[in-house]
Design a protein around this nucleic acid. Structure first.
Lengths: 111, 111
DNA sequence: GATAATATATAGGTATCCTATATATAGGCT
DNA sequence: AGCCTATATATAGGATACCTATATATTATC
């Protein structure tokens, strides 16, 4: 996407997706791409560093899945702190998007 | 604001405010702060560089106001290109905010 | 004379995204 | 066998848009 507007939505949506159930990185990207009809197409170079930071901050926890076949998968699940921060960030998103819409929808004064 | 979610909204809202009527920088910040109940509190160090970039990109044009009293004011008005880009960015904002809300509002699958 | 509000400007730092590159497994095509 | 695609994770390096701090200038208030 060719806009700065997506900044900050990556971590927000990862936390939101993990509230549903534990997922691995590739699955998160595929899920969000499908649900947003391609509006969000997370790159590996953004996704994995973001997951590592969320883990470092204690908002998610990771566990490798022992698969007999194929590449190993690292499943992430939301921690208690992650749930708390998610609630705060949903509130922040709501507040910001409402503020933006309020300004955008304000009628013109000229003409 | 302590979030990355505001990234990109600065230029979008400046263009939107200037669509109403020409304004100067300080006025833009005061207007958006008032209309959003303080949710957006633009700092001079963000605002003026952003205005300079919009001017450099040809989306706004600036003119110093000849005031007999007080500090000079630099009024900005939207150009034709600015109107075009504003329409595109409103569309981008709409697309992104809808995509975010679609993911956030998706019901949990567990429990 | 000191502070606050108005008004604009730039330098330097931080954080998040991007592209590019690397590794590893598996399946399909020629 | 060789190549490409899809799955799956990882890091390095670069671009950009915010932030804080600092600077300047005018006017009003204490």
């Amino acid at each position: 996407m060719d806009t700065e507007l997506i900044k900050g939505t990556l971590a927000l949506l990862i936390l939101s997706l993990l509230k549903r159930r534990p997922m691995y990185g590739y699955e998160l990207a595929a899920t969000v791409k499908q649900e947003t009809d391609g509006a969000f197409d997370w790159k590996a170079g953004s996704l994995y560093p973001c997951l590592h930071k969320l883990e470092k901050d204690g908002l998610v926890r990771a566990a490798w899945e022992g698969r007999p076949e194929g590449r190993q998968r690292k499943y992430y699940h939301l921690t208690r702190d992650g749930e708390t921060v998610l609630a705060e960030r949903i509130q922040a998103w709501s507040s910001i998007s409402q503020a933006v819409n309020r300004v955008l929808e304000n009628p013109h004064e000229h003409e």
